Simulated scan of single mutants.
Amino acid sequence: MSAQFRDVFCQSADGLKLHAKVIGPDNSAALPVFCVPGLTRTTDDFNEIAIALATDPGTPRKVVAIDLRGRGLSDYDPDPAKYSVPVELGDVLTMATSLGISRTIMLGTSRGGLISMALAATKPDLLAGVILNDIGPALEMGGLVKIKGYITNPPVRQTWGEAVTGLKGMFGTVFPSLTDADWQVWARRAFRETAHGGLERTYDERLSATVEGIDLSNPPPPIWELFDALAGIPLMLIHGELSDLLSPQGVQDMITRRPDIDLVKVADQGHAPLLADKPTMDRIIAFCARCDGA
């Protein structure tokens, strides 16, 4: 089967152009998978797992990955206050409707996982299964402060070498096994070349407004009510064993509430696992097959 991505676009409720990549058969009897990336990330983060799901010889399935507003090829919002989970949840529903998706398995990385939990509270009939990639209802302040640090006044990167060096400096300790080629791939997803030379980030830098309120003295309350809305929905949790955002205790607290959770631990990776290693992809493929039969 051909593993070719197709670009699709639709219009948000407030008139922005939204972009998604689609791969896999439109006529598959298997449930589609809808991927939602992290705060500053794009559809490209799901390339490997999307191809694996779309070309699985046993059950090939359609995979959709969305660029949330202000990221990738989606329009930037003139009002940065709209970079919020409720608005982005609406964008996910708009894209799903435009593609005729009425039931799906959600794969959400970080911010995308928060949106997936919010969907369980607002649109549970859409969800045939949920995969949370290194995200939960209770988050570690150290990880939140780190995110705030790297998206607030980020340094300029003029060359790909500078981009790679900068990424290694920020994330090298929690991704110690990545090769030089892996870091190059990461850089190509985090930056793009400008028409006038140099590089720019693949997101609206005004997204920093979303983390302005993060303060060590005022940690955000846990959102267990959204996690509990997942009751009855097949659930997988992928946890980077070096994650500084989701702690082992946070994982255990989730298991206590959901003993049936399908837990995948990813060694030598932090926040958030890259979903590109074969063992993790095989587990995701198997989970999606179980959702088909649920």
Rank of each mutant, 00 (worst) to 15 (best):
Q11G: 02
F175P: 01
G250I: 07
G58R: 08
L126K: 05
L16V: 11
A3T: 07
R111P: 07
L230V: 10
H271R: 03
P234N: 10
A3H: 11
V33N: 02
R103G: 04
P86K: 10
L178R: 13
T210H: 01
I66W: 01
A231P: 01
C35F: 03
T202N: 13
G149Q: 14
R290C: 08
G270L: 10
D180F: 01
K148V: 03
K148S: 09
R290D: 12
D7A: 14
A163P: 11
V211Y: 00
P78F: 06
V64S: 08
V264P: 08
T55R: 10
M141I: 15
I285C: 11
L16D: 08
W160V: 12
R69F: 07
M95V: 15
P37M: 10
T55Q: 14
G70M: 08
Q269F: 09
V63N: 04
F34Y: 04
Y83L: 11
D182R: 02
S243Y: 05
M170E: 15
D204K: 03
G72S: 09
G293D: 14
A29E: 14
W183H: 12
D262P: 00
P86A: 12
V64H: 04
D75S: 15
N218A: 15
V164A: 06
Q252A: 15
G149N: 15
D204M: 10
Q11W: 01
P176E: 08
L235V: 07
L39Y: 03
I285K: 14
D228Y: 01
L144S: 06
V185K: 13
S28E: 08
D228A: 06
K17Q: 13
D44H: 13
G70R: 02
L178K: 11
S116P: 06
V85I: 15
V22K: 06
K146E: 13
E162P: 05
R192N: 05
D75I: 11
K146I: 00
S177I: 00
N47S: 14
W186R: 11
V145F: 02
D26M: 07
V8K: 04
N218R: 13
D262N: 14
A289K: 14
L31M: 06
P124C: 07
L39C: 05
A138N: 12
D262G: 01
K82R: 15
E193I: 10
S12N: 06
R283V: 00
I131P: 03
L199P: 08
E193T: 15
G240R: 05
E48A: 15
A118I: 00
P155E: 13
R201F: 11
I151V: 15
S98V: 00
